[in-house]
Design a binder for these strands. Structure first.
Lengths: 198, 198
DNA sequence: ACCTGAACACCGTTCAAGT
DNA sequence: ACCTGAACACCGTTCAAGT
């Protein structure tokens, strides 16, 4: 499956250029931007793009990997200082925000998280960790799966893409969904450190 | 805005043929089927299709109108015999199922409900009615909007489209979201008629 | 081994010609 | 008023020729 044959120097350079170009173009024109635009921006032939990234999904996932690596690292860094539920909420928030940086990406979030990219694996793993932790703490129902969380993030991103004021709408929807995830017994006690929440 | 000029007889006939053809083609090939396929199936020129339905969204919404009319009527017919919350749940379920009959439709559900088609208006109106009723009964939080419900339906449809066993997943997700919508105080008493729930 | 870009296929959309 | 379909534009993808 994994082809670890190292690339020739020029091929490696082209790969990097393509990724940088893809990042730019996707941010500007959305996830359905023209592949030729990407190749042009990278200064390579269209054939080279297809040689490195056989499908648009592959290119998207690769271009996204860095963002997702950062997301996972950020989440890990802060999670110890937060309630399991608060950490999960922050994670979901970040996931939604990141999914919004390329327009039209929301629909492919699920597929992307399964692409095997280092970044995707990292944020997927981190998400499962947070979910498990929140469930162990009794803050989240046991019948909730990570896929459910992805659905929630997808829906929120989708709604947010077309909204006039995305920020509060994101908070509102995540709040709605998380409350739904809490067990009936009542909320977990928020005993963890707080920097004076409003 | 509304152009009520009656169509010439042949134009009217072509319109009907286009709608019937669109319904078939969208069911078979999904919401992103080729417009030319639709025209071919209807036995008219491609130009005629564009004359009647200037955008794909317009054609989709028109083809969908009947389905949505039925959905709204069904919901009204049964809602009196159900708890407000149960009626809302059944409505959401139907909405998800209907949104799944054309593959790739989930993403446009929000836009479609604003298309002004009789069917869209009817199911939108019905949804708002059920939501209001459930909120009055204290079964749903006051800060939930109809748009929130559309987001939920979109997300569930999206997840369901790609799922191996759509039925239970749909139930699971709707259950999850509805629980989230319930106020903390506890659930509304389910005193309404029941045909021996499981 | 890799790169290039012309060539092919396909689709959406328009519009001049026809009834 | 309406219909038709050729024509145009655009994009994804392949592959023969070249380094």
């Amino acid at each position: 499956m994994a082809d670890d044959t190292p690339l020739r120097a020029d091929a490696q350079r082209n790969r990097q250029r393509l990724l940088a170009a893809a990042e730019e173009v996707f941010v500007e024109r959305g996830a359905d931007a023209s592949m030729e635009d990407v190749a042009k921006r990278a200064g390579v032939g269209i054939g080279t793009l297809y040689r490195r990234f056989p499908t648009r999904e592959a290119l998207l996932a690769a271009a996204y990997s860095e963002r997702f690596l950062r997301l996972a690292a950020d989440s890990q860094a802060r999670s110890a200082a937060l309630t399991p539920l608060a950490a999960l909420r922050a994670y979901l928030h970040d996931l939604v925000v990141q999914t919004t940086v390329y327009r039209g990406l929301a629909t492919s979030l699920g597929a992307m998280l399964q692409s095997g990219t280092p970044g995707c694996d990292a944020t997927s793993k981190e998400g499962r960790r947070l979910l498990r932790s929140a469930q162990t703490a009794g803050a989240v129902r046991r019948d909730v799966t990570f896929d459910d969380l992805v659905v929630v993030a997808t829906a929120t991103s989708l709604a947010t893409e077309h909204a006039r004021s995305p920020k509060p709408r994101t908070e509102h929807l995540i709040g709605l969904f998380l409350d739904g995830i809490c067990p009936r017994g009542g909320r977990e006690v928020e005993a963890a450190p707080r920097t004076r929440g409003h």
